[in-house]
Design a protein around this nucleic acid. Structure first.
Lengths: 207, 207
DNA sequence: GCTAGTGGAGAACAAATAGAGAACCGTTCG
DNA sequence: CGAACGGTTCTCTATTTGTTCTCCACTAGC
């Protein structure tokens, strides 16, 4: 049975805790870690994980949330490859993506990506510096043709230019906000804007 | 049989004592170690551990609480995943690092860390927002007690506060620059500033 | 518009767990 | 002997924890 996004997140958290040797958390503790305020909400998710056979049933006992003993978590002989995503090129505000001739691979931890197909771009320029994305940063993009308002998207404008901007879709128009107060928000007709992906993660290296 | 949290805690304590070569404790001693005031309460827990086959039955003898011989406590089958670093806590400008009670591990791609020992902190607050480091970001810190000018360091000020700031060391004084034009650079005597690590990587998750 | 699916808040409940304190019993030792 | 010590058993109470419920917000799809 497929897990929902939240269920997967909770499962990942439990696995990380177990790997770190931490004791089984109570629902309240897990709520704190996940930023939830309601035990009831979390309980629903835990129930789903129990039903999926991934978490030991609690049966009302105060023993915390424990993962079922993994028979052998063997589908990971080369766990490193799991985390490799293609680095497709560099993206600069207002210019098409400059593709890299030979597709490179770059390691991305699973918590910086989503479950769907993702790829990585490198930032050129400072158009997003006020969103904490600087020249040279790597951004992880989830391949997707739609977005929720407020997300930062890779958008293709009139089939020409590609930019990374925060999106606001209203009826009849699309606004793209550069996070740079020196630049103006741009307004387009929905047909002019093609969403090519949504920003889900970001990495920077200091040297 | 699954243990309750308290039972697990007592068992861990017993194991640690045994590893340290200490003699078997009496119930009263254990009470002291665990912050209990009632032998009776502790006795219940010990009984549960006896029932679980983890502690030798006492049978009224004054021999103290002894663990049963462990069949084979596997030492550390941990493959020590190359990409996992400890997440030690959160750091907010001007506050001591708020350590996480239970150590978590977080995946860090090798290109975001250095060859030396590293650890991860989570950012609280916006004191570094102009350096592209936002509230909630993870930063990878290389454990080091010295820095080059211009690097961003984890600095302990007068043994009290911990901050993440860009450092400039001159003869006779140390300047710490918050990347936030609303805040002032602080000047210290070299003896007041203890470098605890240097920023080498940064990660952010969007959702 | 409507509806299903997901995710969260919060209240209320019952059971499991945890602890205090006291009394009881056997052993050891002055 | 009788005190001191250490393990046992008991009652009583408080807190924690898992559970269930209702209500609400948002999204996706029709």
């Amino acid at each position: 049975m497929a897990l929902t996004r939240r269920q997967q997140e909770i499962l990942d958290r439990l696995r990380r805790r177990e790997d770190a040797g931490a004791p089984a958390p109570t629902l309240d503790e897990l709520c704190g870690l996940l930023g939830l305020r309601s035990r009831g909400s979390l309980h629903k998710h835990i129930q789903a994980l129990v039903a999926a056979g991934l978490v030991e049933p609690l049966h009302g006992q105060h023993r915390g949330v424990r993962l079922v003993a993994q028979p052998a978590r063997e589908p990971a002989p080369e766990p490193a490859h799991e985390d490799l995503l293609p680095l497709l090129g560099t993206i600069a505000a207002g210019r098409p993506i400059e593709a890299i001739a030979e597709p490179e691979q770059i390691a991305v931890p699973s918590h910086l990506r989503s479950d769907r197909p993702c790829y990585v771009l490198q930032i050129a320029g400072d158009s997003l510096c006020e969103a904490g994305i600087l020249d040279g940063d790597y951004v992880v993009i989830e391949q997707r043709d739609h977005a929720r308002n407020g997300e930062i998207v890779v958008a293709l404008i009139r089939g020409e230019d590609v930019t990374l901007k925060r999106i606001l879709q209203e009826s009849g128009r699309v606004l793209l906000y550069p996070e740079n107060s020196a630049m103006q928000a741009m307004e387009y007709h929905p047909d002019e804007v093609l969403i090519q992906g949504v920003l889900v993660g970001q990495m920077r290296r200091y040297r």
